[in-house]
């Protein structure tokens, strides 16, 4: 066990309890912390003060890249690299480049969305310190957890523990790295 623990984990029994606990932790100004719930809790992101994800921006960038790739590819093959008149049509027209651009827009958007999500979530992640916690499997079943990392600027072993107690957390435990 290293000198500094990974953080503190606290247990809550109901969705309402973790919702209010999240508000408390958010208002105390913590940044590096998370909630573990067995089911989606509506409004929890708001209670945690989580901002909108950056993934849509990455998706948009992927889509624009895909569209331009399609247009460029058709222009390059038909009007630059190997000029060939087909069906009396111009060497390049956005008309016939549109279907392929449209498909590549969707494809690149999908790649960017998946890739962006993996990147922003630090995936793939094969190990996480909470997995060492004995009761963590209850988080897949019937219990709710708040984890505050020691890496947080505001983290203080005593004060943070007191905050979690005040928020109604039970079985507050130090997590190893």
């Amino acid at each position: 066990m290293s000198a500094q623990p990974y953080g503190l984990i606290a247990t809550f029994d109901t969705a309402a309890a973790i919702y209010h606990a999240a508000e408390t932790v958010r208002d105390a100004g913590y940044k590096k912390w998370d909630c573990i719930t067995p089911c989606p809790v509506h409004g929890l992101d708001g209670a945690m003060g989580v901002k909108r994800s950056l993934v849509p921006r990455i998706s948009l960038a992927g889509g624009i890249t895909g569209f331009c790739t399609g247009m460029l590819m058709i222009w390059w093959t038909g009007a630059w690299n190997y000029k060939l008149i087909v069906g009396g049509k111009p060497l390049f027209s956005p008309m016939f480049a549109f279907p392929i651009s449209y498909e590549l827009t969707i494809l690149f958007t999908a790649f960017a969305t998946i890739g962006g999500m993996f990147l922003l979530n630090n995936l793939p992640m094969h190990y996480h310190p909470v997995l060492k916690y004995d009761h963590i499997t209850r988080g897949l079943d019937d219990q709710f957890f708040v984890v505050i990392e020691a890496a947080d600027m505001k983290f203080d072993a005593k004060a943070t523990r007191a905050l979690l107690e005040k928020a109604g957390g039970k079985n507050i435990t130090e997590l190893e790295h």
Binding site: G87, G88, M95, F96, F98
Partner: peptide
């Protein structure tokens, strides 16, 4: 709408 235009444009 694009499909309608595109098919007519292409078939000529």
């Amino acid at each position: 709408t694009f499909s309608q235009y595109f098919l007519i444009w292409n078939a000529n």
